[in-house]
């Protein structure tokens, strides 16, 4: 024990460094490249206003005032359009119309009891509304990108909207109708978004509306290109095919476009195709985005958590 203490005293500089460095690396590794937690929320709250100012200065060069107004209007119009499309597509609460009987009193009088002695008359009227009624299950919130990194393997975006604006962790982020990323951490005023161009995240996607589900991942090399992996070799794919979200992860509605196939290859095992996908989202010019809240996400997540795990 005494020798150990002497050894530590002799190499105290190294010991101190190893302890501090281990703590720092542990902190970094625990986030797994996904910055999150109280530290990040504090940082966003403290720096958000400054980031907004810097973003404003950065945008001065590209006719900020008029361009921003047009983009905001575009985002709001798209939000309204998406909400309308969802409303029309959601048939769960539609009123089912059936013509009423011509004369219910006469029909009732003419009704003959069945073998059980029960008189059955034609049922008509309105089907009661489903539990969701015609409520739009998809909410869209416009937000502005106030900071973005596009030069790292763990890129991120910071938006000027937070819980006060309806944002929550797990919501999808889109720009001009295409998938951009998902909300990863949120404060009252700001949100941290992990984009598709982040090497630590996988996205559930398919080629076309009917293709098999596969993994969309970014290899960290080219900003506009990702790979769709684990595509069965039997899948017929052509350059230009659109890659869409499956909707399984709950970040985006099914069918949200990611990008188009530009190249086809085979993985190391030779069993699956690897498709190079050019993303629709232009990360170098992102200014405004729409944050999508897919309805019932919390309930679906809760059900998912109840799924028994293999022992």
């Amino acid at each position: 024990m005494r020798n150990l203490l002497l050894l530590i005293a002799r190499h105290h500089r190294l010991v101190l460094f190893v302890v501090f460095e281990a703590l720092a690396l542990g902190w970094y590794a625990s986030a797994n490249g996904h910055a999150r937690g109280a530290w990040i929320r504090m940082s966003l709250a403290a720096n958000g206003a400054w980031m907004e100012r810097v973003a404003r200065v950065k945008h001065v060069g590209d006719l900020a005032t008029s361009n921003d107004a047009l983009l905001r209007e575009n985002a709001e119009l798209r939000a309204a359009l998406l909400a309308r499309e969802t409303e029309l597509a959601d048939t769960s609460g539609w009123v089912v119309w059936e013509p009423p009987p011509v004369d219910t009193a006469a029909l009732a009088a003419a009704a003959v009891p069945d073998s059980g002695g029960v008189v059955r008359t034609a049922v008509s009227g309105q089907k009661p509304r489903g539990p969701r009624g015609i409520e739009v299950p998809l909410r869209v919130y416009p937000a502005r990108v106030i900071r973005a990194s596009d030069d790292r393997s763990a890129n991120y975006l910071i938006l000027d909207a937070g819980t006060a604006d309806g944002l929550a962790v797990g919501q999808g982020v889109m720009a001009l109708g295409a998938a951009v990323g998902r909300v990863h951490e949120v404060t009252g005023q700001y949100a941290l978004v992990l984009p598709l161009v982040h090497t630590g995240i996988e996205w559930s996607a398919r080629v076309g509306a009917d293709g098999p589900a596969a993994r969309l991942v970014w290899d960290g090399k080219s900003l506009g290109m990702t790979q769709l992996r684990d595509v069965p070799r039997s899948t017929v794919v052509a350059a230009g095919d659109t890659v869409l979200a499956t909707g399984f992860q709950g970040f985006f509605p099914a069918g949200t476009p990611f990008g188009t196939v530009v190249e086809e290859g085979v993985d190391r095992t030779g069993e699956f195709k690897v498709l190079t996908v050019q993303l629709f989202a232009d990360y170098r010019n992102l200014r405004y985005v729409e944050v999508i809240d897919v309805g019932d996400r919390e309930q679906l997540d809760a059900l998912g958590r109840r799924t028994p795990q293999p022992e």
Binding site: L16, E21, A24, W27, R36, W39, S43, N47, Y156, I158
Partner: peptide, 27 residues
């Protein structure tokens, strides 16, 4: 070492990153 740690924490706070700058500046 301490100066490196302090500088790293400051940069991590400003850049909204988890320990990346702290680990670097400590080294």
């Amino acid at each position: 070492l301490v100066a490196g740690g302090v500088m790293g924490l400051l940069q991590d706070f400003a850049a909204a990153s988890n320990g990346l700058y702290t680990a670097t500046c400590l080294a």
